[in-house]
Each structure stands twice: as structure tokens, then as C-alpha cells.
């Protein structure tokens, strides 16, 4: 029973002339924790709405938990990007209503909800009206509404937006815990270091086109390190002398110097040359971050054929 919980085949969706999603192919393995990345307006929310059968694709097929999301709504937890609460409803009442709509009618639901509220550090909110809560608290209630029926597949659209660092780590802990219990989780975000920390897999789309679909380990292996981080003893004259080294494309001057390498340049020989030219406190070849992959892939000036080429390279690899 290791059917992929989510499978998209050649899914297209346009709104008038705007192609929101083009030829999207996705296959999410069971039990994985996937980051769905892309800049604002990339088509993430549209793709998620198609997955949820809220929008119907113009063409292509979507298979969620072996059928349509409509048939399996009670097994899917969904935190939409456009989310809210009934302002005048009490928190407990709202969660019970959502749970009932998801087919949870068992006794003791109120007790479970109270326990969850305690875990989310929202004790004593059960009888409060939603409008009395702060925005961050409302966000956590919404997260709880998405998982209250213990779904097998969890789709979270920007789950961390509007949360402070403390609550962000609280919610990420919960997501990790659900992942460990074997749930399949997909979450979209444009905050990449979160994805990098949490996900075991990610896909990246821009302008409705999938640019990347791989595990985090694969991505790191695939994009070899292209940055050398240098912390010189004497920062003032180091930058200019380092720029002369053949193979260095540019130097960024922050707290430490970052040397970006030209294509084909050999990191080992460059690092040797750096040591020869100046005294360093530290020197390291930096692992590529998702952020850099992201920026490299989503360059606004990328020509359409470049995108297609890059996509082929990335997915065929």
C-alpha cells in the first residue's frame, strides 16, 4: 500500500491569457515531507487549489489518495492561503464545526480540542470568541483546524506566514512530529531556509513551470559548491587583492568575504591562492543553500528556452 498519495500528470490551468500552471508533473511519495517552493505569483496556490479540487484543471489528471480530493476530503488536511475564522464564533465551536464537516463526530472531541489548544500554547481559549484572539493565535487555530481530524495527507499553504519565531518553531515541531507519525505533508513557502531545515524533498515552480523536483540531498549533490567564504585578518586590502585570482567571478563584501566562482573554476586551487595572498582567520567552501538554487533558477531575465533547458537538465539528472 505504498501508492503515492499525490500524483499530477500534465496539469495545465489558465486564467484568460495568464497561464497559471503549465504541464505540471508531480509525484509525492508516501510519508514524505515536501516543500513546495516558488516566488510570489509562481502558481503555488493555484496548483494547491487544483490538488484540492477547488479549481479544476484545463487538462491533465490529478490523483489524490488514489482518487479525487473531493472523494477523500475527510482524509486530507488543508490550510489554505486565504484563511480565516468566523469572527464571532467561539474557538471550540469553530473547531468542532470544522471537525464535524470533516466527518469527526466522536465523543470526547471537545476534550481532544482542549488538549490540542494546550499543546499549541493556547490554553483557556476554548470558550473565547475568535475575534478576541491575536493574529498569531488565530493562525495557530487555523493550523489546528487543518489537522484536527488526523488526516493522512496534509497540504499547508504558507503555514508560517504571520507567525513570530517562537510560534514558527512550535508549528514546525508539530509538522515534524506529524511527519514522523507517517503522514504525507506538502507545504508551500517562499522562506527557503525553513524548507531546507524541514523538508526531505522539494519542488520549485516559477511562472507555472516546474523547475526543480528532487530530494534535498540530491539538490546538494547536484549543485556543486560555488562559493568560498573568507574571513581575512585584515579586511581592508584583502578584497582587492583577491579579485585578481583567476576563476573568481565576483566578491561580495559583508561581515566576511564571499567569493563567487566562475563556471569551470577549480575550488581547490583557488582556495590555495587565497591563503597565499592574505592571512585568514577562516576559510571554507560553502555548501549551496536552497536560496542560491532558487535565485539561480528563478532569474527574471531567464529566456523561455533557457528555462526549458534548465528544467530538462534538472529533472533528467
Amino acid at each position: 500500500m505504498n501508492l503515492p498519495p499525490l500524483k499530477l500528470r500534465a496539469v495545465c490551468k489558465s486564467f484568460g491569457a495568464n497561464k497559471a500552471v503549465q504541464d505540471l508533473e508531480l509525484e509525492v511519495p508516501a510519508g514524505s515531507l515536501c516543500g513546495f517552493l516558488g516566488p510570489n505569483g509562481a502558481g503555488k496556490t493555484t496548483a494547491i487549489r487544483i490538488i484540492m479540487s477547488i479549481l479544476l484543471p484545463d487538462s491533465g489528471t490529478v490523483e489524490v489518495l488514489g482518487g479525487s480530493a473531493l472523494d477523500n476530503k475527510d482524509r486530507i488536511g488543508y490550510l489554505p492561503e486565504e484563511r480565516g475564522l468566523y469572527r464571532r464564533m467561539r474557538v471550540g465551536e469553530f473547531l468542532e464545526y470544522v471537525a464535524a464537516l470533516k466527518g469527526v463526530t466522536r465523543r470526547g472531541l471537545a476534550h481532544d480540542i482542549k488538549q490540542w489548544l494546550d499543546r499549541l500554547e493556547l490554553p483557556l481559549t476554548y470558550r473565547q470568541r475568535c475575534q478576541e484572539l491575536s493574529k498569531g493565535m488565530q493562525q495557530k487555530i487555523q493550523f489546528l483546524a487543518a489537522i484536527i481530524h488526523d488526516p493522512d495527507l496534509l497540504i499547508l499553504d504558507e503555514p508560517f506566514s504571520g507567525l513570530d519565531p517562537v510560534n514558527t518553531s512550535l508549528v514546525s515541531r508539530l509538522i515534524e512530529e506529524l511527519h514522523q507519525r507517517g503522514k504525507t505533508i506538502i507545504f508551500s513557502t517562499h522562506i527557503l531556509h525553513q524548507a531546507e531545515q524541514l523538508c526531505d524533498r522539494c519542488f520549485l515552480i516559477n511562472n507555472g513551470i516546474k523547475l526543480l523536483d528532487a530530494t534535498i540531498a540530491d539538490i546538494r549533490a547536484q549543485f556543486d559548491p560555488r562559493t568560498i567564504e573568507v574571513e581575512p585578518l585584515n579586511a581592508d586590502d584583502a578584497a582587492s587583492s583577491l579579485l585578481d585570482i583567476p576563476g573568481i567571478d565576483s566578491v561580495s563584501n559583508g561581515r566576511s568575504l564571499e567569493l563567487f566562482l566562475k563556471d569551470g573554476a577549480e575550488p581547490r586551487s583557488i582556495m590555495k591562492q587565497v591563503i597565499e595572498r592574505c592571512d585568514v582567520r577562516s576559510l571554507r567552501l560553502r555548501r549551496i543553500t536552497l536560496e542560491e538554487v532558487f535565485v539561480r533558477l528563478v532569474r527574471a531575465d531567464l529566456a523561455a528556452e533557457d528555462v526549458v533547458r534548465m528544467r530538462r537538465e534538472l529533472t533528467d539528472a
Partner: peptide, 17 residues
């Protein structure tokens, strides 16, 4: 209109058609 402006609509639509 309230459900739309409160943005609770999509939460509902994830549970019912």
C-alpha cells in the same frame, strides 16, 4: 459575504463542495 471577507470560505471548501 462574511464568510468571504473573513476568508473562512476556503477552509469550508476543503471539507465540503
Amino acid at each position: 459575504i462574511e464568510e468571504k471577507s473573513n476568508k473562512v470560505m476556503e477552509v469550508l471548501l476543503s471539507a465540503v463542495s
